[in-house]
């Protein structure tokens, strides 16, 4: 008996029209040239600056080339390494909370029932995400005020003593963490919710008939659909925390002492308070290298099939 072979359906190729050799580039030119002028050129300028002794408060002896001196100094600089370590600590402090809360909210929003309430919560998720980061810092400063802040009022309701949050190193770190969790948990929730909605309906319904345990459903059916989102969140949030500036700057300016001195705050201070542009540029270039590694990771995870 002749075997019946079924040809795979022809893959629909993306439309590709004949065009002159230069046509694609003519359309790209305005955007590419602009991004080159405002992105690549300043970056190259920063590289050159990082090789010079470039202090804006001492301009009379010019800006002599010093080779890799700034980089060596930066790598040996305890404060710089401490700010990087603090930024990493901030990441490992906020991420578990944002992920756990985010998954829980996504599951609660995905679960049938309370339709109107779910719709309201879903819409409310975008409010923190769009709130101006600088204003988030201002709100945080008011909420965590020692004398008339509402955080201490809540603490008192639960029988805990009030705290001078922003005057205490640990309190300040906790306060910026809370504001970050407030602002970015919805981001995790929305990404996980998108993952959950990718689970085929019939699979999920069949699983619901099999088991009444939400945990079993999560582990065996929904988890595979959450993992790509998880990777995206982990990479994007690490880049976001490396560039976190606005909220922390308005809330604590890196203080008290160095308690909330994250890496972007520190570089900004070296560049625009101390005006040591050479050192600050070297720090910024190192940060850029770190970011490029992260982007590579992100792209290899998500854009494999770009045609």
């Amino acid at each position: 008996m002749a075997s019946l072979t079924i040809d795979p359906p022809p893959r629909r190729r993306p439309v590709c029209l004949s065009h002159g050799r230069w046509t694609p580039f003519l359309f790209l030119a305005p955007a590419v040239l602009t991004l080159f002028a405002i992105g690549i050129y300043p970056t190259l300028f920063a590289v050159v600056t990082s090789l010079r002794h470039y202090n804006l408060t001492r301009t009379h002896d010019g800006f002599p080339f010093v080779g890799l001196h700034n980089y060596i100094a930066v790598l040996a600089d305890h404060t710089f390494r401490e700010t990087l370590a603090r930024t990493a600590l901030f990441y490992v402090t906020v991420m578990p909370v944002e992920l756990a809360l985010g998954v829980t909210i996504a599951l609660a929003l995905h679960r049938p029932g309370w339709t109107l309430m779910r719709a309201v919560v879903r819409v409310s998720l975008v409010v923190p995400l769009a709130t101006t980061y600088a204003v988030v810092g201002l709100i945080g400063r008011l909420i965590f005020n020692r004398d008339f802040g509402v955080a201490n009022q809540f603490a008192n309701w639960f029988g805990m003593p009030g705290l001078d949050w922003l005057g205490d190193p640990r309190g300040a770190f906790a306060a910026i963490a809370v504001m970050d969790i407030w602002q970015w948990t919805p981001f995790c929730a929305l990404i996980f919710l998108a993952g959950l909605s990718m689970v085929p309906n019939e699979v999920e319904e069949a699983a619901r008939l099999e088991t009444s345990s939400p945990l079993a459903l999560l582990r065996h059916v929904q988890l595979p659909f959450l993992l790509p989102g998880l990777t995206a969140v982990l990479i994007l949030r690490s880049a976001d925390i490396l560039k976190l500036f606005d909220m922390v700057f308005t809330m604590t300016r890196g203080g008290p002492g160095a308690a909330t001195d994250l890496v972007s705050i520190y570089i900004q201070r070296v560049g625009f308070r101390v005006f040591d542009m050479g050192t600050a540029s070297a720090q910024a270039i190192l940060l850029l290298v770190l970011t490029i590694v992260l982007s590579r990771l992100f792209i290899s995870a998500f854009y494999r099939e770009i045609d």
Binding site: I38, A46, A239, K243, Q268, A284, L288, T291, R296
Partner: peptide, 23 residues
């Protein structure tokens, strides 16, 4: 080109702020 466009999403503004200030 894609890579370049997307990495712009990740770059810390402080990296560009320093040279752009001087320029």
């Amino acid at each position: 080109l894609w890579f370049w466009f997307i990495s712009n999403r990740m770059i810390s503004p402080i990296v560009l702020a320093l040279p752009v200030y001087l320029l």
